[in-house]
């Protein structure tokens, strides 16, 4: 009896959480006729891949925007790696009042809603354009730049770097390693999984950018897919679902690949905490 309720509960939870995704995937295999039907339907009448054909062969502007999304995400990822690792390293090693206050400020910034941080960005870009003559609006750089300096990465990595046993650090120091060498050869290999998890988080976050492109980009050719899908829903609903699935695909794929590493990381954190 208990086993049955457990199974039922599991099934219930699974269905509730996966349902929207399944819905989207199943709709991507419907053809245009069924999509015009405004009722809520779950199973496609005829299983066909016409949507995918249309989106890849005929309406493949979508892929140009896909590249846009990829560029923006990759840009932020790269930048964040460089910037956040350094900052987290600093915070984990340096334990002074100043660094604590600084970290508090960083946490504070992390929690700010995007709209608030966007305002200073916009003002900054405006003055740069006016005084330096550089055109920042409507470029993808304008979107990447704030993302690179987002403090989430610093927060996350600092926690993890701190959980590294102090002994590693001291041994390396005794061996005469410089700070840079310690960072590259001790801290980073240790926190491979955490960095991978952070990458995943940043990837998810930036793949899904919505607020910044609306403000910073004006021409449709530079938009990421996340915005495009919204316009697609009203204009070309036939390929909306295929586009949604293709858009979800990299994130889910990366997630599935990393999930094993995540499991290891979870266990490691639990081990350390004990």
């Amino acid at each position: 009896m208990k086993k049955f309720t457990v199974k039922l509960l599991s099934a219930f939870i699974i269905i509730v959480f996966i349902f929207p995704i399944l819905y989207t995937i199943s709709h991507s295999f419907m053809d245009g006729y069924q999509l015009k039907n405004n009722e809520v339907e779950i199973v496609p009448e005829i299983f066909n891949i016409q949507q995918y054909y249309e989106i890849s062969v005929e309406k493949n502007e979508y892929f140009k925007l896909y590249i846009n999304s990829a560029i923006m995400t990759a840009g932020v990822l790269l930048g964040q790696m460089i910037v956040s690792i350094g900052a987290a390293y600093y915070f984990s090693v340096k334990k002074s009042r100043y660094s604590e206050v600084l970290f508090l400020i960083y946490t504070f910034f992390m929690l700010l809603p995007l709209q608030i941080t966007l305002i200073p960005n916009v003002l900054l870009y405006n003055s740069i354009e006016r005084y330096l003559g550089l055109r920042l609006f409507n470029t993808q750089f304008a979107v990447i730049l704030p993302g690179v300096f987002s403090t989430l990465g610093v927060f996350f990595l600092k926690q993890f770097f701190e959980s590294m046993p102090q002994s590693y650090y001291e041994i390396a120091k005794i061996d005469g390693a410089s700070d840079l060498e310690i960072l590259l050869h001790v801290v980073l290999p240790y926190s491979k999984n955490a960095i991978a998890a952070l990458c995943l988080l940043i990837f998810i976050e930036n793949w899904n950018l919505i607020e910044q492109p609306i403000i910073f980009l004006s021409s449709m050719s530079k938009m990421p897919v996340s915005i495009y899908l919204n316009t697609l829903y009203s204009s070309y609903r036939e390929i909306f679902y295929a586009g949604s699935v293709l858009f979800m695909f990299p994130v889910i794929y990366v997630f599935m690949k990393i999930r094993d590493k995540l499991k290891v990381m979870v266990l490691k954190i639990s081990d350390e905490g004990r």
Binding site: V6, L9, S10, I13, I14, F17, I18, F19, P20, I21, Y23, T24, H27, N38, V40, L200, I204, W207, N208, I210, V225, S226, I227, L229, N230, Y233, F240, Y241, S244, V245, F247, M248, V251, I252, F255, R259
Partner: peptide
């Protein structure tokens, strides 16, 4: 209850899904 791995995956999966992708479902 030692729920299976599938449950864990199912609960975690929505955080990875982009908002635009499932907007279709929620819109309807």
């Amino acid at each position: 209850l030692k729920l299976s791995f599938w449950v864990q995956a199912a609960v975690i999966l929505p955080i990875t899904v982009p908002a635009s992708s499932v907007s279709g479902f929620f819109r309807e």
